[in-house]
C-alpha cells in the first residue's frame, strides 16, 4: 500500500506550499465526506496544511492539478465514470475512500439483480408508481449494468478502508502525507471488529 506514496513523499519533503486536495462523492451515501468533517475543529489546522480544490466541501465544481484525490463511493453510472477519469487525470495520488469505493459496498448490492429488474421495480412495478416508465431525460446519467469498485475503472494508488473511515483515519492520512511521512496507521484506526 505504502510503496505508491514514495513519489509524493519525496516531493513533499521540505515543501512550503500546501498540498492540494480534491474530493468527490460517486455512488455512496456521503458518509465518508461527513466523516472527514468529523475531524471537527482540526479542520482549522488542516487548512493550514492543505488547500482544497474541487470538493463538495468548498462547492468548487471543476478540478485543477492536484496532489491528492479522495474518492468516495462506487462507480454506478456514466457520470461517475467521467468524474473518476477526470480525477485520475488530474491527481498524482488517487485514493479509494470507504467500502463503497474499495469494494463497491452498499450500492453494489444491486449487482445480484439485473439492471432491468432494478429499474422496473423502481419505476414500473413499484407500489404507488404513477406514469410508469424508466426516466430517459438526457440530464440523468445512464446506469452501468453493474456497480464497480473504483479500481476496476481507473488505476488507484491507495485504499482507506472503513464504512466510513474514521475522522482520525483521514486526519492521520492527510497529516502524514502533508508532512512527507510514510503513512502508517495505528491498529486501532484500521480495526473494525
Amino acid at each position: 500500500m505504502v510503496a505508491q506514496m514514495s513519489n509524493i513523499q519525496q516531493r513533499n519533503q521540505g515543501r512550503k506550499d500546501k498540498l492540494i486536495v480534491a474530493t468527490a462523492p460517486l455512488c455512496g451515501c456521503f458518509g465518508c465526506h461527513m466523516s472527514l468533517l468529523d475531524i471537527d475543529e482540526r479542520i482549522f489546522e488542516l487548512v493550514e496544511l492543505v488547500e482544497f480544490d474541487r470538493t463538495p466541501v468548498t462547492d468548487i465544481k471543476t478540478i485543477g492539478k492536484c496532489d491528492i484525490g479522495l474518492i468516495e463511493g462506487g462507480v454506478a453510472n456514466a457520470h461517475n465514470v467521467h468524474d473518476l477519469r477526470e480525477f485520475r487525470a488530474n491527481c498524482d495520488t488517487l485514493v479509494a475512500v470507504g467500502s463503497c469505493a474499495v469494494t463497491g459496498g452498499i450500492p453494489a448490492m444491486r449487482n445480484q439483480f439485473d439492471l432491468k429488474e432494478c429499474l422496473e421495480e423502481a419505476y414500473i412495478h413499484g407500489i404507488g408508481v404513477e406514469n410508469p416508465h424508466v426516466p430517459n431525460d438526457v440530464e440523468i446519467p445512464l446506469l452501468l449494468d453493474k456497480v464497480h469498485p473504483i479500481h476496476e475503472v481507473v488505476r488507484v494508488d491507495y485504499f482507506l478502508p472503513g464504512c466510513p473511515p474514521s475522522a482520525d483515519t483521514f486526519w492521520q492520512f492527510l497529516t502524514d502525507v502533508a508532512a512527507g511521512n510514510e503513512v502508517s496507521f495505528p491498529y486501532s484506526l484500521i480495526h473494525y471488529d
Binding site: A78, N136, V154
Partner: peptide, 25 residues
C-alpha cells in the same frame, strides 16, 4: 490503466430501457 470490461457496453441495458442514444449515453 484500462478496465477489464467494456464500459460502453456496460451502458447498453440502460440505453435500451431508456431508448437513448445521445452522446451522454
Amino acid at each position: 490503466y484500462e478496465p477489464a470490461f467494456n464500459l460502453d457496453k456496460a451502458l447498453e441495458v440502460s440505453r435500451q430501457l431508456t431508448g437513448r442514444d445521445d452522446e451522454e449515453a
